[in-house]
Design a binder for these strands. Structure first.
Lengths: 207, 207
DNA sequence: GTGCAACTTTACACACACTGCAACTTTGCA
DNA sequence: TGCAAAGTTGCAGTGTGTGTAAAGTTGCAC
C-alpha cells in the first residue's frame, strides 16, 4: 500500500530496459501471431524479431502463450482492493464487487491497446483463453483471502456466503465483463458493461 | 439421438479393448502422478506401467494432462440436451438449466471415483485446471448452439438473454457445482449441490 | 573514473511432449 | 479362410522449456 500511485519515481536504467524489452517481446509476438497464427510461430522466430536470444524469452515469460497475453504478476494490493477488504466503498456487497471489477479492468497492468490485441488473438485460439482463465484462477486464492478479510470486517452484512462462491462470482463477473467490453468493440466504460452483465445474470436467476 | 440409452448392445471386442485400454491409461496416470507429481511423470513411464507404446498413448489422448483428467469427447447429444433445446422439461429457464447441469454431472463419461481423483490432482496442479477449462471452452460453441435452439423454440419465455451469457452461466454453474460436490467429499446428489449454488449466487446478486 | 558486487543476457546441452509416416498386427465379416 | 478396416508400434524429427556456466551491463562507493 505504501506507493500505489507514485508515477515515475526516476526509474533506473535497468528497470526501464527490462520493461522495454518485455513490451518489445509482446509486440513482436502479436505481430507474428496475427500474421501466421499461434502454432506457426516459434519462440525462436519471436526472438529474432525482437532481437534477443531464445533463452532470454523464457526469463520474461513462462510460456509462449503468456507472451501473447502479456501476463505479468497481477497487482492485487492496490488502493481499490484495500478499500474493498475493509468494507468499502459503499458497504453493499454487490455494489462493491462491481466497483472492484471495474478497477481490475481499468488498472490492467499492460496498456488497453495491447489488451485489446491480446483478446483479439485469444478469440481465435481457445488455448489462449483457457490460459487466461487459468491465470485468473491462480489468483483466486488471493481473491478468496481478500473476501475473507471483508467478511471478517463486516460480518453482519455479508456473512452468509462462503468466500469461495463470492470469489468465483468475482472472477466470473470480471471475465464476462471483459468479453462484453470486447464484443462492443472495446468502447464504453467498464462500469456500464458490468452493470449489464449483472442485470442479465440476475434476471436469469430470478425470473 | 437414435441410441441414447442402449446400455450394453453386445459391444464388439474392438470397442471393449479400446475402453479397457483408455481406463488402464487413466488409472496408470493417476497412480504415478499421485505418487510422484505431474511433472516428474513422463508419458514413457505411464506407458510402461500400462503396457503400451508411447505412440499409442497419443492415439488416446491429445496431451498428458488429458489423461489425468480423463478427457473424452463430451456426449452433448443426449436425451437431456435434446429436451432442453426443445423447451423442456418445465419450460422455466432456470429450472431447466439446473436439470441440465445435473445431467452433465450424472452422465459424466468417466466414473465418479475417477473424476474425484482427477479433481484431487487438479487442485495441486494449476496447469491441469487450465486444460480442464480449455476443454470446457471447446464445448462452449456447442452449448451456445444448444441455447440458441431453445431460444428459437420458445422466444417469448427466454428471449431477452444472449446465448453467450446463458452459455457462460451454464458453464459457471457446472464448474461451481462440481467444486462444491468435491468439497463435500463427493457425497450427496448433484441436484442438492446445484440448488445451493444457485441460491447463493442469487442472494449475492439481489440482496 | 576505477573497481567491485549484483543483475542480465547468452550459448550450449538436454529432457520431454507431441506429430507424421510406414510397416506390422489384430479384428470384423463375408 | 481370406480380405479390408482399424489399431499398434518404432523411428525420425520439430519445438518448448530448463539448468548451468561464462560473458556482458549496470549500480554504487570511493
Amino acid at each position: 500500500m505504501q506507493n500505489s500511485v507514485v508515477d515515475e519515481p526516476a526509474l533506473g536504467l535497468r528497470e526501464r530496459k527490462k520493461r522495454a524489452r518485455r513490451e518489445a517481446l509482446i509486440d513482436a509476438t502479436h505481430r507474428l501471431v496475427a500474421e501466421h497464427g499461434l502454432d506457426a510461430v516459434t519462440v525462436e522466430a519471436i526472438c529474432e524479431e525482437a532481437g534477443v536470444s531464445a533463452r532470454t524469452f523464457f526469463n520474461y515469460f513462462e510460456t509462449k502463450d503468456d507472451a501473447v497475453l502479456g501476463h505479468t504478476p497481477w497487482p492485487l494490493d492496490t488502493a481499490a482492493t484495500e478499500e474493498f477488504a475493509t468494507g468499502g466503498p459503499t458497504g453493499h456487497l454487490l455494489a462493491d464487487l462491481q466497483t472492484l471489477v471495474s478497477s481490475f479492468l481499468t488498472d490492467a497492468p499492460i496498456g488497453p491497446q495491447r489488451v485489446a490485441r491480446a483478446l483479439e488473438l485469444a478469440a481465435k485460439e481457445p488455448r489462449l483463453l483457457a490460459r487466461h482463465l487459468a491465470w485468473m484462477e491462480q489468483h483466486k486464492g488471493q481473491l478468496s483471502a481478500l473476501i475473507e478479510r471483508r467478511i471478517q470486517h463486516s460480518p453482519a452484512a455479508d456473512a452468509p456466503y462462503s468466500s469461495e462462491i463470492v470469489g468465483a462470482t468475482l472472477l466470473f463477473l470480471t471475465h464476462a465483463t471483459f468479453m462484453r467490453w470486447d464484443a462492443a468493440g472495446g468502447t464504453g466504460s467498464a462500469d456500464e458493461h458490468i452493470a449489464a452483465v449483472v442485470a442479465d445474470l440476475r434476471s436469469i436467476l430470478t425470473d
